[in-house]
Computed example of a mutant assay.
Amino acid sequence: MLATYILGKLATNNPSALKILKTKVSKDENWRVQEMLAKAFDNYCMTLGYENSLVTIEKWLTDKNPNVKRAVVEGLRIWTNRPYFKENPTKAIALISRHKADDSEYLRMSVGNALRDISKKYSELIANEMATWDLQNPKIKFTYKFVTKNG
């Protein structure tokens, strides 16, 4: 697991390290490894700068592997405490919300938890986002319940 963290550090100067995180580490079944992947991704973004990482964030969020997408959502929690996203909370909300109806329950849970975290500072922005959601969709309703869950 320490190796995953180190790869996150290395990835800023070595594209092959970032590729290993995305293509190899993300396939590990162990949840602890997935947590380290999320931390490694955050470390990569922090080192490079969150705004400078937007292209990579966008790419990872469009990956087919839900663990890759989750690494972004979970890794950057609490998003609005991070530079760039602190000044641009709507960007963070938009990026995270894209996956409210993802096939992966594991990812939708992370989406809901991340948006709930943001709602503590930006409740009106989250309420505005959720007002656009189709709660007839069971996947979206699942995410909605995590956003609105207390504690």
Rank of each mutant, 00 (worst) to 15 (best):
L18I: 00
V55F: 15
G49W: 12
N13C: 13
D28L: 10
L37F: 15
K19H: 01
N67R: 12
N81G: 15
W31N: 09
V73Q: 00
A94G: 14
R77L: 03
V111Y: 15
D102L: 13
I20Q: 12
Q136F: 10
E87Q: 10
S104P: 06
D134Y: 10
R108E: 11
S104D: 05
L2C: 11
N150T: 10
Y122L: 10
K100D: 05
D102H: 11
V25C: 04
Y106L: 06
L54G: 05
Q34Y: 04
Y44I: 03
N65G: 00
L18E: 13
C45D: 07
V55K: 13
C45F: 08
S16H: 05
Y106K: 09
K149T: 04
R108I: 03
C45H: 10
V111R: 13
S53G: 04
R82A: 02
L107P: 03
K145H: 11
R32N: 09
F41A: 12
R98T: 00
A71S: 05
N137Y: 14
Y44S: 13
M130T: 07
Y50T: 09
F41P: 02
I118A: 02
K19F: 15
F85L: 02
A17M: 02
G112Q: 03
T143E: 02
V111A: 07
N13T: 01
N150E: 07
C45W: 08
P83K: 06
V72C: 00
L48A: 10
D42S: 03
K19L: 14
G151V: 05
M46P: 08
D63S: 09
E87K: 06
S110Q: 07
K9E: 04
W60S: 03
V147D: 06
W133T: 00
G8V: 05
T4Y: 15
M109Y: 14
M36S: 12
K141C: 07
A3V: 03
L10Y: 04
L21V: 08
Y5F: 13
F41W: 11
L48W: 00
W79L: 06
L61K: 09
R116N: 05
P83V: 05
